[in-house]
């Protein structure tokens, strides 16, 4: 009981952690990243296409979401939409929260498209929709891929916040096991190791991608 590391306990908790990892952590990360990627782009385009006062309001809402804690947002949504699955709430809140970050990334990407590109679409009498979909977005989005990847990693590491609304993700699973067996060491350490093993190689991959993209410009 008092030994530092108990392999029996480690082997007992590992399947539970991996189950939670696959069924909650991964699903939330992937689904929320998809939402953040799409919603963020929509926000960025919307903000640049509406009259200034409306854009200011959108900006303010974005700042508000970005500058307040996800945990509080999760709880807020949880108590407001009592009949919705907590997992769904989690995906939606993470997706919306991170879309405000992605919107900023896209904005920078859009602004980095040279002015001449806009002028060329005007000179060719292209429609607004065509201008965005065929010219601006393809050029703007390329450079934003690494940022999206990095936000996906952060989201991944934020998933334990879900335990505040009762979702059994990895850490929650570990804590439950720890509480039942009076051993937290193995469960929590393994959860940390899984996070590290999943996020570190991914972030290396992203920085590699980032360098490649930088060279190709």
């Amino acid at each position: 009981m008092n030994q530092v590391w108990d392999w029996d306990a480690a082997w007992a908790v590992l399947p539970e952690l991996l189950m939670a990892f696959v069924h909650v952590t991964l699903i939330v990360t992937v689904a929320s990243t998809a939402i953040a990627a799409v919603l963020g782009l929509l926000i960025a385009i919307l903000r640049m296409s509406v009259p200034k006062p409306v854009a200011v309001v959108i900006n303010f809402i974005g700042d508000f979401i970005r500058m307040t804690p996800i945990v509080v947002q999760l709880l807020f949504a949880y108590w407001t939409f009592l009949n919705v699955e907590p997992l769904t709430i989690g995906i939606a809140v993470f997706g919306i929260h991170y879309s405000t970050y992605m919107a900023e990334v896209y904005r920078a990407g859009i602004e980095s498209v040279p002015k001449g590109q806009w002028e060329a679409t005007t000179a060719l009498s292209m429609s607004k929709t065509r201008t965005w979909t065929a010219v601006i977005v393809p050029q703007a989005v390329r450079a934003t891929v690494p940022a999206l990847g990095n936000y996906a990693i952060s989201m991944f590491k934020d998933t334990p916040f879900l335990l505040s609304i009762g979702v059994v993700e990895m850490v929650r699973a570990g804590l439950t096991f720890g509480g039942n067996n009076f051993r937290y060491m193995e469960a929590i350490t393994l959860a940390g190791v899984i996070f590290l093993l999943a996020s570190y190689p991914t972030s290396l991959l992203i920085s590699r991608l980032e360098k490649r993209l930088a060279y190709n410009y």
Partner: peptide, 23 residues
Amino acid sequence: IEFFRGTSLVVQLFFLFFVLPQF
């Protein structure tokens, strides 16, 4: 650096709070 960046904040917090008392 990589260790603390790679393992979630919540995990670190729980480690400090639940695991250290074991020792």
